[in-house]
Amino acid sequence: MSDKSSLIDLLSMAEPKPELRLKIIRGVEKLTDICFKCMKCTSGCTSMKLLELKPHIIVNLVRMGFVDELVSSTMIWDCSICLKCKERCPQEVSPVDIILALRCEAVVRGLEAPEEYRSMLTCIMENGLAYREKKRVVEGVEYDRVKLGLPKIKGPKETFMNAMFMVFGEVLG
């Protein structure tokens, strides 16, 4: 055990990382410290039944400083971002915001982000939107914007690409 911490998880031998914890909660509205472990978030979590996601555990692991294991876990990608935990928490903790911050940290470290997110990002860089214009097929009939009389999509100017490159050059705290 290092000299810095008085705490260690005996099962995983993990030690808390206070600076990393501060980085995660910096972007988040309410601090994790005030969670009083009522279990309400996990009791109502949309992803609990199917994927065993337990928001209260994520909040309290971050609170303790055990951030590394969360960042490299698949658990943080199980969240359905339905906001039920944020809506109902009696202490106004926001587990979903902590999970999103952990996801961003995972991306920064070059860890696996689901394919779909990467393709959405690529699409945004190419034409400004998260998806490509598609034909809708219903009962064998093809529909597109032209056929339906909708105006052409106004894409972004060239300055957009430069701006996006600037964004990825900026690291959010």
Binding site: C41, T42, S43
Partner: peptide, 17 residues
Amino acid sequence: GIPSEVKAESNGKLSLT
């Protein structure tokens, strides 16, 4: 643990997780 929601089932019973 505190439940997040109370639902009614179609048979009238109340369910909570």
